[in-house]
């Protein structure tokens, strides 16, 4: 089947999901991101690659970190960035998604960075652009519903490679609210593609999607058992705003059973790293002592995220 993310030369045209993205392309993005990390240390933190390009940040759902890091990445590449907080504008007046896109295309957009509460919104936009002969415009998925958050997945892969080098030797645990998490789905897809032999998912039964094993992860319902001897712990945010019904008793009880504390962290390898995509709920999924501890790489994740997004944008715009 034709991969809708790739152009006819097999190059990256859009970044929509990590599921099904060839290993060579994932590795190539990680390789390209490395030299971009150096730009932040310069007097002038800017590269001329996207000079004259217009990038529209289309956030149909709130976000601070992701939108800001995309904006910084685009600005460091000298692109013109327009931020549209669509949740407060035309959509609330009744404009359809594709009408919004058509209007922005008429303003000569070169790239859309899209976040949407509905899974599949970015691919709908990409298909619409292709069908209307505007396939020179690129789409980056900045998180759609419960489906995918590919740049977060990529920056997590960059972080793991930075600290642990070889994916094929690692035990990795993803912990928490997998059910609502597009981040977890992107992480699992990439980790499997990169050949992680021991991938674990640790969560209460109510917060696990059915058939998660079919993605190649082993499930654990006991945190102490699941964390034993892992190299990497990837915490997820408890997505209270997406919870409908009684999936959990109370946040306090969740913390007691599923929160990452120093005592539970000690069950993993001595040099294990702790990751979190943010924003963190301290005292719910992670204890402050762990979040601020020596094994946490949560702030480096944010810094690497800018370089990874610069790499994705400059690869797309050059293809």
């Amino acid at each position: 089947m034709l991969n809708p993310q790739l152009n006819r030369h097999g190059e990256l045209q859009h970044l929509l999901t990590l599921d099904g993205l060839p290993r060579e392309i994932i590795i190539s993005i990680l390789d390209h991101a490395a030299p971009f990390t150096e730009v932040a240390e310069r007097e002038v933190k800017k590269l001329p690659l996207l000079r004259g390009k217009s990038i529209f940040n289309l956030f149909f759902e709130n976000s601070t970190r992701t939108r800001t890091t995309f904006e910084i990445a685009a600005k460091r590449l000298t692109a013109d960035v327009v931020n549209l907080n669509v949740s407060t504008s035309s959509t609330s007046k009744g404009e359809s998604l594709l009408d919004t896109i058509d209007n922005l295309c008429a303003m000569h957009a070169d790239m859309f960075v899209v976040r949407h509460a509905a899974s599949g919104a970015p691919i709908l936009i990409a298909q619409h652009l292709l069908a209307t002969g505007r396939d020179h415009i690129h789409v980056i998925n900045a998180g759609d519903g419960r489906h995918a958050h590919p740049t977060q997945g990529l920056l997590d892969m960059y972080t793991i490679r930075h600290y642990k080098r070889d994916f094929t030797q690692l035990s990795i645990a993803i912990v928490g609210d997998v059910l609502h998490s597009r981040v977890a789905r992107s992480q699992i897809a990439a980790l499997k593609t990169l050949g992680v032999p021991d991938l674990r998912v640790i969560a209460p039964k109510t917060l696990l999607p059915s058939a998660i094993e079919s993605m190649g992860a082993r499930t654990f319902h006991d945190m102490r058992e699941g964390l034993r001897d892992v190299d990497v712990i990837m915490m997820l945010r408890l997505q209270n705003e997406r919870m409908a019904g009684a999936l959990l008793p109370t946040p306090q009880e969740y913390y007691k059973v599923w929160g990452l504390t120093a005592e539970k962290l000690a069950l993993s390898k001595k040099d294990a790293i702790v990751m979190h995509p943010g924003p963190m709920n301290r005292g719910i999924e992670i204890d402050s002592a762990v979040a601020d501890g020596a094994q946490a790489v949560i702030l480096p994740q944010v810094t690497f995220g800018i370089a990874v997004r610069m790499a994705v944008m400059s690869m797309l715009a050059g293809n």
């Binding site: 390209h32 150096e38 590269l47 001329p48 690659l49 050059g318």
Partner: peptide
Amino acid sequence: DISFYRDDYGAKGLHANPQRTNIPFSI
């Protein structure tokens, strides 16, 4: 490494294997 400063980026895209620029002194 001049990969990010090339004037043919628009036509040829990003160089396949850009590396880190390293200037370990003040310019």
